Amino acid sequence: MTTFKLIINGKTLKGEITIEAVDAAEAEKIFKQYANDNGIDGEWTYDDATKTDTVTE
C-alpha cells in the first residue's frame, strides 16, 4: 500500500485527506467519490512525485 493525499481547494470546503491505496488509480477513484459526496466539482491535478491529487473549484 502507498500513501496518497488529496488537497481540497473548494469554495466552501478546504483541507486535505490522506489514504492508503494500492495505486494512483485506486486513490483517484476514492478521492473523486469523496469529492462527489461532498459536492466538490472542480479542476483535478495529480503530482506523481508527491502522490498528491489536488481539486480546485
Rank of each mutant, 00 (worst) to 15 (best):
D53V: 15
I30H: 05
E20S: 10
K51I: 05
N9W: 10
E28Q: 14
I8F: 12
N38E: 06
G10H: 06
Y46G: 02
I40W: 06
T12A: 07
F31N: 00
E28N: 13
D41Y: 15
L13F: 15
D23Q: 02
M1Q: 06
F4V: 05
V22M: 12
N38G: 04
W44E: 02
T50C: 14
Y34V: 02
T2Q: 13
A21H: 05
E57Y: 07
F4I: 04
N9S: 07
N36H: 14
Y34Q: 01
L13E: 08
F4P: 01
N38H: 14
T50Y: 06
Q33T: 06
E57I: 13
W44M: 03
A49D: 11
A25N: 12
I7H: 04
K51L: 10
T52Q: 06
Q33M: 07
K14Y: 13
T18G: 01
I17Q: 00
F31E: 00
T45Q: 07
T3L: 11
E16R: 03
E57Q: 07
D37H: 04
A21L: 06
I40D: 01
L13M: 13
K5P: 02
V55L: 12
A24L: 13
T56M: 05
L6T: 01
G42H: 07
V22W: 13
F4Y: 12
T52W: 06
I40E: 02
D41T: 13
D48W: 11
E57W: 08
T50P: 04
T12G: 10
K5M: 09
E43K: 09
I19P: 00
D48C: 13
A24G: 06
W44N: 03
I19K: 00
E28R: 15
T12H: 14
D23N: 12
K14I: 10
A27R: 00
Q33V: 07
V22E: 07
T56F: 07
G42C: 14
T2Y: 14
I8W: 14
A27L: 05
V55Y: 06
K11W: 13
F31C: 05
G42R: 03
D48M: 09
G39Q: 04
E43W: 13
K14H: 09
T54H: 07
T45Y: 11
N36M: 14
D47E: 11
A27H: 00
M1W: 07
I19A: 01
A49M: 10
K5C: 15
G42Y: 08
D53P: 08
T45V: 09
T3E: 09
M1A: 05
E28C: 15
A27Q: 01
A49G: 07
T54D: 04
E26H: 09
K29H: 07
Y34D: 04
D23S: 13
I40G: 02
L13N: 06
K29D: 03
T18Y: 14
T18C: 14
D41L: 11
K32H: 09
I17Y: 10
Q33G: 04
W44D: 01
E26G: 04
A49P: 07
I17L: 12
F4K: 00
D47Y: 07
T12N: 10
T54S: 09
D23L: 02
A27G: 00
L6C: 12
K11N: 14
T3P: 02
T56S: 08
I17V: 07
I19F: 05
N38I: 14
T52E: 05
A35R: 04
D37C: 13
A24H: 15
T18F: 12
D53S: 15
D47S: 06
D53L: 15
Q33H: 04
D37R: 04
T45K: 06
G15P: 08
Y46D: 01
N38S: 10
T2K: 11
D37A: 10
E43L: 10
N9G: 02
E57S: 06
E16A: 06
D53F: 15
D53K: 15
L6F: 15
I19M: 02
V55R: 03
A35C: 15
A27N: 02
I17W: 11
G15Q: 14
E57N: 06
A21F: 07
A49K: 10
E28G: 08
T12K: 10
I30Y: 13
G39Y: 06
E16Q: 12
G39N: 10
I30E: 01
L6D: 03
I7A: 02
I19T: 01
W44T: 06
N38D: 02
T52N: 03
F4A: 01
N38C: 15
T2D: 04
D47G: 04
I40H: 02
D53E: 15
G10Y: 10
K5Y: 11
E28L: 15
E28Y: 13
I19D: 00
T18E: 06
G42W: 10
I40A: 03
T45C: 14
E26V: 05
K11M: 13
L13C: 15
T18Q: 05
T50W: 05
N9M: 08
A35W: 07
K29W: 10
I8P: 00
N9T: 05
Y34P: 01
E16M: 11
K32G: 01
I17F: 11
I30A: 04
W44L: 01
A25D: 09
M1P: 05
D53H: 15
T54L: 08
V55C: 09
G15N: 08
T45M: 08
G42T: 05
I7K: 04
E20H: 10
A27E: 00
I8M: 03
D53N: 15
W44K: 01
E26R: 04
D41I: 14
I17H: 01
D53W: 15
G15T: 13
W44C: 09
T2E: 07
L6I: 09
V55P: 08
T12S: 08
D23A: 06
I8L: 08
F31H: 00
A27K: 03
N36C: 14
N9R: 09
T45A: 09
G15R: 11
N36D: 12
G39S: 04
G15H: 13
K32V: 05
A27Y: 05
I7F: 04
N9Y: 09
Y34H: 03
D37S: 08
K5G: 01
D23I: 03
E20K: 11
K32A: 08
L13V: 12
G15C: 15
A35V: 12
D41W: 13
E16P: 02
I30S: 04
G39K: 05
E26I: 04
G10R: 01
N9E: 07
I7Y: 06
T52F: 06
A25H: 09
I40R: 00
L13Q: 09
E43G: 03
G15L: 15
I17T: 00
E26Q: 11
T56C: 11
T50V: 06
E20T: 11
T56E: 08
N36Q: 14
A27D: 00
T56R: 05
Y34E: 02
T56P: 05
T56H: 08
D48Q: 10
V22K: 12
L6K: 00
A49C: 14
T3M: 11
T52M: 03
A25V: 10
I8A: 00
Y46K: 03
T50Q: 05
A24F: 15
A25W: 09
V22S: 11
D53G: 15
Q33F: 03
K5I: 13
I30V: 09
L13A: 06
D23Y: 08
V55A: 03
Y46V: 04
E28H: 15
K11D: 09
V55I: 12
I40C: 11
I17E: 00
G10L: 14
N36A: 15
M1N: 07
T3A: 05
A25P: 02
E28F: 14
A24Y: 15
D53Y: 15
E20A: 06
T3Y: 11
T56D: 06
D53Q: 15
E20F: 14
K32N: 06
V22D: 01
I17P: 00
T18P: 00
G39E: 04
A24I: 14
Y46P: 02
T50H: 06
T54A: 04
N38T: 04
M1S: 08
D47M: 10
A25F: 11
D53R: 15
V55N: 08
A24S: 06
T3F: 10
M1Y: 10
D48Y: 11
D47W: 07
T52S: 05
T2H: 13
E16W: 14
A21T: 03
L13D: 06
